[in-house]
Simulated scan of single mutants.
Amino acid sequence: MSKNLVLQTDFGLSDGAVSAMYGVAISVDPDIRIFNLTHDIPQYNIWEASYRLYQTVRYWPEETVFVSVVDPGVGTERLSVVVKTGENQYIVTPDNGTLTHINNSVGILEARVIDEKVNRLPNSGESYTFHGRDVYAFTGARLASNTISFEEVGPVVDVENIIELTKPKASKDGEVIRGNIDILDVRFGNLWTNINRELFKETGVEYGDSLEVTIENNTRHIYKSIMRFGRSFAESRIGEPLVFVNSVDKLGVALNQGSFANAYHIETGANWKISIRKVPNNL
């Protein structure tokens, strides 16, 4: 193993929860290298936890171990699992939908249920509300440090039985591309859609073309305007909207040096729909 351990939670950093996970991992092996993916996942937001793994995992070396804890079902019968991805990395997480984007992108080769009789922090058996520390950080550190092998995590579970969230697909309807707003580029307020670049290019759109962008929440009309398809933000004026290709090769919508999400009160999820069509540049 690489001894790289990457942590993601919805715990925030205002108390000792993440620090406790660090302490458990270092107690397993003081040479382990611990990194933060993020601890700012919105509380209980399994969808965002799944997306942030998808956004990040493929850029880490093989055998990196990720621990993702967004776990509204902690203490219930939901399973705790470790999966091996199609790019030879490992993810330790509750089986609650957190693996949705990974399974649909890089794929899952094998999954194992964590055997808590072996892979649980000693003397923590009466705790049912902090599996991030007692089960996930402990198991992830043992795996990353070669204290245990993947086979020693626990029994195999069928990958087809791993829980997935509903994941809408983008579509092409004539000259119109329809999709959803998957997530926000939080700090800058850009909208990240589920429309991939290849599907978008099927409409014959080129950089500099004008696009009509419509956003709806369920059946409620939220936004409609014409903007340019830009290669970079510098191709638009400050405060001007644009469509661009983001860092995961999907279409994004932004305000140059502004927050599109805040300006138009846009949120994310299956009910937030976006449609894009090319219009003549002189409109």
Rank of each mutant, 00 (worst) to 15 (best):
I108P: 09
R142Q: 12
S247T: 13
L5I: 05
E116S: 07
Y207S: 06
N119R: 07
N190R: 14
K3M: 07
A25Q: 10
E48D: 11
S105Q: 06
V243N: 10
K169N: 01
A254E: 10
F244M: 14
F188A: 01
M1C: 10
P42K: 11
F200Q: 09
P94L: 07
T166W: 07
T203I: 15
Y223W: 15
T166D: 14
F188P: 00
E235F: 13
A144M: 03
M21C: 08
K224T: 11
A254M: 14
S225L: 03
V82M: 06
T214I: 12
I183S: 05
I222G: 01
R220M: 10
E77V: 09
N104D: 14
G23Y: 12
D40H: 02
D182S: 03
D10V: 11
E62T: 14
I266D: 06
Y207D: 11
R231P: 10
M21T: 06
D40Y: 04
S145F: 03
G12A: 09
K169Q: 01
F138G: 02
I46V: 12
I274N: 01
E48T: 13
T98R: 01
R33T: 11
P94F: 04
W272C: 07
S124N: 03
Y90M: 09
G230V: 15
I162R: 03
A234K: 15
G230Y: 13
F188M: 06
G86P: 05
S171H: 00
H265S: 11
A49W: 04
Y223K: 10
K201P: 01
D10P: 05
K172W: 00
S236C: 06
G140D: 06
P168Y: 02
P94S: 01
G239C: 08
H265D: 12
R237Q: 14
V135G: 02
S232D: 15
K167I: 01
E160I: 01
S2N: 15
V135N: 00
P72H: 12
E87C: 12
D71E: 08
N123H: 10
R277P: 05
V253Q: 06
S50L: 01
N103C: 03
D95Q: 07
P94H: 04
L109G: 05
R187E: 11
H101F: 08
V213H: 04
V69L: 06
Y22G: 02
T9L: 00
L7M: 07
K3V: 00
N246K: 13
V245I: 15
K169H: 00
G174V: 09
G208C: 13
R142G: 02
L37S: 08
S210F: 06
A25R: 08
A20M: 07
R231M: 15
F188R: 04
V176G: 02
V74N: 06
R197S: 12
E216P: 00
I177P: 00
Q43A: 12
P30A: 04
G269N: 13
V176F: 04
N271F: 04
S232C: 05
K278L: 14
L7N: 05
N256Y: 15
V253G: 03
R231K: 15
K278S: 14
D10E: 02
V156E: 14
I91E: 05
